[in-house]
Design a protein around this nucleic acid. Structure first.
Length: 298
DNA sequence: GGGCAGGTCTAAG
DNA sequence: CTTAGACCTGCC
C-alpha cells in the first residue's frame, strides 16, 4: 500500500502517490530550504518549457540538491542518486498513510474542513540538527526572513557541493562549523537575539550534552523536555523539532496561528491531548488552513 | 514611526 | 506557578 521511489533510465519518481502535493508540502511552513523554481524570463527559453516551470520546487535535503515536480499523477524527483536506497521514501514519509490519518479526523468538523484543503501535506522527515536550528531561528520572526537567514547561514558555513545541474549548493552547517563561527559569526548573519540560542544549541550538540539521535528512542514528553534544555528552545520550537525531525506525530506545536484557531473554533477548550496520536499532522492542516483563510500564502 | 512576525527568557508578584 | 516586558531585524 506504500509507494516507493521508482528509479529507471535516469528517472526517479513516485508512481501516483496519494496525499502528495509538492506545493502544500513545501509551503505549509515545515521546511525553509525549498522554493518554487523561478523561470528566468530574461533567458531565451523555448516556449514549451514555460508550462513546467511553475510547479517545480527545488532545494537541498539529505545533502543533495533535488527538484520536485508533479507531472500528471506522478511526482518526479530530479537529482536523486542512482542508488538512493530508500532515502527519499524516508524523507517524504512514504510509509505513513495520510489518508487514514485524515479519516481519523472525520469526527471533528473543523479538522475535516482543514483536511479538505491540506490533504496533500506530508510531514517531511528532516535532518535533526537542521530542524532544531531552523526553528530556533523561526521564533518571533517571519518566514521570508527566516528563509533568508538560513540561506545565508548555509552559504557561509555549510559544506559546498555540486548539484546535478552543475551549480554549487551548500549542505546545512554542522554543529562544529557553527561553534567555530561563534556567536559573533551568527550575529553577522543578522540573527539578532537568536544568535546566542543557535550557538548554545550547536555547542551542546558538539559537546555531546545533547545527543540528537537519542531523541528517537524517547516518548514525546521526554523528547520535549530534553530539547528544552537548550537555551532558546521552548515548547513551540521543541514541538516543531519533535514533529518535523523525529516523527513524533503527537507533538502539537502551538504558534500564534494555531492559538487563534483554538480560540476561534474550539472556544479555547482543546489542547494537544484532544488532537491525539496524530495531533501534529492535524496541526499542520489547521495551520495551513487558517493561513489560507487569511490570504497568507507564499 | 510604531507594529508585527510560526517565541522565549527573565524578573517580579 | 503565572505573567508582563524586552528582545534583533526588516518590511509595511
Amino acid at each position: 500500500m506504500t509507494t516507493k521511489l521508482i528509479q529507471k533510465n535516469d528517472l526517479s519518481f513516485f508512481r501516483s502517490p496519494v496525499n502528495f502535493d509538492p506545493e502544500l508540502i513545501f509551503n505549509c511552513g515545515q521546511c525553509f530550504r525549498f522554493d518554487r523554481k523561478t523561470v528566468d524570463t530574461t533567458l531565451d527559453t523555448p516556449a514549451d518549457t514555460n508550462a513546467s516551470g511553475n510547479g517545480v520546487f527545488c532545494g537541498v535535503a539529505k545533502g543533495r540538491y533535488i527538484e520536485v515536480e508533479k507531472l500528471g499523477d506522478d511526482i518526479i524527483i530530479r537529482g536523486a542518486d542512482k542508488d538512493a536506497d530508500g532515502l527519499w521514501d524516508d524523507y517524504f514519509d512514504m510509509d505513513t498513510d495520510y489518508g487514514a490519518i485524515g479519516k481519523s479526523f472525520e469526527h471533528d468538523r473543523v479538522l475535516c474542513e482543514a483536511y479538505k484543503y491540506g490533504s496533500g501535506i506530508r510531514i517531511l522527515h528532516q535532518d535533526e540538527f537542521e530542524t532544531l536550528i531552523s526553528f530556533i531561528i523561526s521564533q518571533n520572526n517571519n518566514i521570508p526572513r527566516i528563509k533568508g537567514i538560513i540561506k545565508n547561514l548555509c552559504a557561509a558555513y555549510g559544506e559546498p557541493f555540486e548539484g546535478f545541474d552543475g551549480n554549487t549548493y551548500h549542505a546545512f552547517p554542522t554543529a562544529e562549523a557553527i561553534v567555530r563561527a561563534g556567536e559573533q559569526g551568527m550575529k553577522e548573519l543578522r540573527m539578532g537575539f537568536r544568535a546566542g540560542y543557535v550557538y548554545d544549541a550547536a555547542k551542546k550538540v558538539l559537546d555531546g550534552e545533547i545527543d540528537l539521535k537519542s531523541v528517537y528512542g524517547m516518548d514525546t514528553k521526554s523528547a520535549l523536555e530534553y530539547l528544552m534544555k537548550i537555551k532558546g528552545v521552548g515548547l513551540k520550537v521543541a514541538s516543531c523539532t519533535a514533529l518535523f525531525a523525529f516523527k513524533k506525530y503527537d507533538a502539537f506545536p502551538v504558534d500564534v496561528w494555531v492559538k487563534r484557531i483554538l480560540e476561534k473554533y474550539y472556544n479555547g477548550e482543546k489542547d494537544a491531548d484532544y488532537f491525539g496520536e496524530y495531533g501534529g499532522v492535524a496541526q499542520q492542516y489547521l495551520f495551513y488552513y487558517e493561513r489560507c483563510m487569511n490570504g497568507v500564502m507564499l
